[in-house]
């Protein structure tokens, strides 16, 4: 499988990259980790005329806490999440996800920014970031802007980045006391996309759930939050019945399609189970 022809640019600065984007318009594709894009190009499903490789731009790969947020540079490799003490000790939901994205070799090249910008509902980070209520930073010819993650995903493989914008950073709020999160994924084998996966971030206070955000992976055409499931939890003591109700709400509000991973009925019910189990794990961590 041989990719089609394209022109390749490797800008040294973000400004240079943005001006290349402006110049080449929709002919151009950003090359980050390339772990989704290059296979697509090898199958000639993607035929960009121009590739703008942002791997040589300094300062896009970092993990640091600042002003109550974890800042993740867009070019941070997935493997860096696994190797980060900050992530492993404080951002459990993210740490859970980082261990099950694709396979360890892919994680050495794949980037957090690429995973989100690709806006594939099968990818793991969209649900994670939805659960965290993250913010995405986008740089374009007119400067940098923030996009709330809830406003980011607009359609299958579509997002609210402008054609000439580059995703540069993801900001995750540092979990407050009493907050816990988890990600659970059922995949057919290592390296597979989820049949269904749930990302849950909960805040507990005196046995009551005071805040909840739930993201779902690969059970909808657009990365989604399970808002009805969240509502079923907030203000409640998380009894088995409440958790079951949240699971059932998620099963009802997700919108999976049938494929080799399973039928719609299976994916819905599996989503119920995954959401329930993830809630329990997040609860344990919140306490």
């Amino acid at each position: 499988m041989i990719p089609g022809e394209f022109d390749y640019h490797s800008p040294q600065t973000l400004a240079e990259a943005i001006s290349l984007l402006v110049e080449h318009g929709d002919e151009a594709k950003i090359l980050a980790g390339g772990q989704s894009l290059i296979p697509a190009m090898r199958f000639r499903l993607a035929l960009p005329g121009t590739l703008i490789d942002i791997n040589r731009i300094d300062g896009l790969s970092y993990l640091r806490e600042e002003n109550g947020h974890l800042l993740i540079g867009a070019m941070t490799r997935e493997s860096a999440l696994e190797e980060s003490d900050i992530v492993q000790s404080k951002y459990h939901l993210l740490a859970d996800a980082a261990a099950v994205i694709a396979d360890p070799l892919v994680r050495n090249l794949a980037t957090v920014g690429g995973n989100i910008a690709h806006s594939d509902p099968a990818n793991d980070h969209p649900a994670v970031m939805l659960a965290y209520g993250a913010t995405v930073m986008a740089a374009g010819p007119n400067g940098t802007r923030r996009i709330a993650i809830d406003d980011f995903f607009t359609d299958l493989f579509e997002n609210s980045l402008e054609e000439n914008e580059i995703l540069t950073e993801i900001r995750i709020p540092t979990p407050a006391a009493g907050t816990g999160g988890a990600y659970l994924k059922l995949e057919r084998k290592v390296g597979d996309y989820a049949i269904s996966a749930a990302a849950v971030q909960l805040t507990m206070s005196g046995g009551t759930c005071t805040a909840a955000r739930i993201g779902l992976t690969n059970v909808s055409p657009v990365p989604m939050r399970a808002k009805n499931a969240e509502q079923a939890l907030v203000g409640q003591t998380l009894t088995d019945d409440v958790i079951e109700a949240a699971g059932q709400a998620a099963a009802a509000e997700c919108d999976p399609s049938q494929d080799l991973r399973g039928s719609v009925a299976y994916k819905r019910d599996l989503t119920r189970v995954m959401v329930k189990r993830t809630i329990r794990k997040a609860m344990e961590r919140a306490n």
Binding site: I38, N55, V106, L109
Partner: peptide, 27 residues
């Protein structure tokens, strides 16, 4: 393979194991 699935092409780049069929030489 063609899908970054099998790892037969794994090499180390700056000490990290990656699949060399999912990277361009120019990179």
């Amino acid at each position: 393979c063609d899908t970054t699935s099998c790892g037969a092409c794994t090499v180390l780049i700056n000490g990290r194991a990656v699949k060399s069929c999912t990277m361009f030489a120019v990179q």
